[in-house]
């Protein structure tokens, strides 16, 4: 049976408590992983591993809950002049992020596109949405 949204939120919260050493009451849907919860780049690898463990029993070995490198955030975007110009994402950069990150809501970000605001895209809700999408795919 598919996990409820509440159960997915609960497991994601447990992972964040463990990986980032934060208290449960700090983990709200709107909290950003980097600015609010203090995540650093290497924490995303730890979080990926722990999410895989938290949800591995929900998927079969044929379609495992596996988070590939760059799946949470595509790599080398910020170093590519075709994707970033003057500190803002180009049309190509924006299109790439939307394609690679269907779990993210870009509606507030799109009008500004500032690279400095990318950390604000990673909220607890984003991560829960990401996990729900992956669970739906592995159950399909």
């Amino acid at each position: 049976m598919a996990l409820s949204r509440t159960e997915v939120e609960s497991r994601v919260a447990s992972v964040l408590e463990e990986a980032l050493g934060v208290d449960a009451d700090e983990i709200t849907p709107e909290a950003t992983l980097i600015n609010d919860l203090g995540a650093e780049s290497i924490d995303f690898l730890d979080i990926s591993f722990q999410l895989e463990k938290a949800f591995e029993d929900e998927c079969s070995p044929e379609t495992p809950f596996k988070i590939e490198q760059g799946e949470l955030f595509p790599e080398n975007v910020l170093n590519d002049p075709e994707l970033v110009e003057d500190g803002r994402l180009t049309d190509n950069g924006m299109a790439l992020l939307k394609e690679k990150m269907p779990h993210v809501d870009f509606s507030d970000f799109e009008s500004d596109r500032s690279v400095g605001k990318i950390p604000e895209l990673f909220t607890v809700k984003t991560l829960v949405d990401f996990c729900e999408r992956k669970l739906a795919l592995c159950a399909a």
């Binding site: 290497i42 690898l45 080398n76 170093n79």
Partner: peptide, 12 residues
């Protein structure tokens, strides 16, 4: 512990 394969991780 968490280990990094640094050639694959340190972008740029």
């Amino acid at each position: 512990l968490v280990f990094s394969h640094i050639d694959n991780n340190m972008s740029g």
